[in-house]
Amino acid sequence: MKRTLFLFWALLPHSRNSVMSDRAVIVIFASLIVMSFLSNRAFALEAEGRALDPKTKVLLYTERHFFPAPQVHEVRYFEADGRLFATKKLDYAQSSNAPSFEQLNERQGEVISVKHTDKIELQYRASSDAATKSATFNVSNKLVIDAGFDRYVREHWSELVNRKTHSVDYLVPSRQTTVEFKIKRRTCLDEQISESVCFEVKPSAWWLSLLINPLYLAYDETTKRLVRFIGRGNIADKNGKYQTVDIYYQYIE
């Protein structure tokens, strides 16, 4: 049985000004939010997602997702003209909330590598001509890495739906640090699909929340699948800029 899932990743932008640097934090966080929504039979899924410009509705890029094994998730990113420009592979074998993963964006030569040993080992390269930076982190119940956020949402679905606010420490590869974000239920935006459960995600730090627009996510109430995402995207354009995207998620049996 095949299903098709629209998903979104957010990667940290590399702006040279402070405001964009702060916005970068939410960009990388967005990446973890929309990736999996998987059941125990997730390996049977194949997926495709279309990221649109919120104002013009022009296609910015397409994502295709494959699940070759129960704990393995592969993503391929394509330009609007169909050319492959980025790949990602996640492994949830050691942690559902904090998966290992490898990502390459050939637009800028950005490389992210996160591996589990007794700790979390991160290597990050911003572009093909940049130096690789490294860092290590302790594993904790609050630590969330990339698409591990999706599994975190499903594991805490009941509490979140009943309006309990949760906070997570999200790994930001481009800054080699973690940042705390709050997740809470909210009334769905007019633009979002009706009959959904909607959440708002924003930094816990008040000063950062003043600079960064929240992320809005709409989920199907029955299947707990993401149906729409509005916010800054995870894939930089050819100029290295990160765009605000409007992504619809569709599932095909």
Rank of each mutant, 00 (worst) to 15 (best):
E200W: 11
I252P: 03
K2Q: 04
F85Y: 11
T223W: 02
L5Q: 11
V168Y: 08
I120F: 08
A218H: 01
F181K: 06
I145D: 04
H156R: 12
L52D: 02
T62S: 12
E79S: 13
T132F: 01
F78S: 04
T117W: 02
R64S: 01
N138L: 07
S36N: 06
P99Y: 08
P203A: 03
M1I: 13
K184Q: 14
Y170H: 15
V161R: 01
F67H: 07
S158G: 06
S128A: 12
L122T: 00
Q176P: 00
V114Q: 08
L11I: 13
S18T: 03
E121Q: 15
A130M: 02
E79M: 10
K133Y: 03
E48R: 15
K202D: 01
L45E: 02
R151Y: 13
L215T: 07
V114G: 03
L189Q: 08
Y124H: 15
E46N: 06
F181H: 04
V197G: 06
L143F: 10
S113P: 00
D237E: 03
T56H: 12
V58S: 05
E102K: 06
E102Q: 14
V172R: 07
L32M: 07
I183K: 07
F78C: 02
E74Q: 03
L7T: 10
L122Y: 01
E79H: 08
S209Q: 14
N213D: 14
I252E: 11
R232S: 04
A24R: 04
L38C: 05
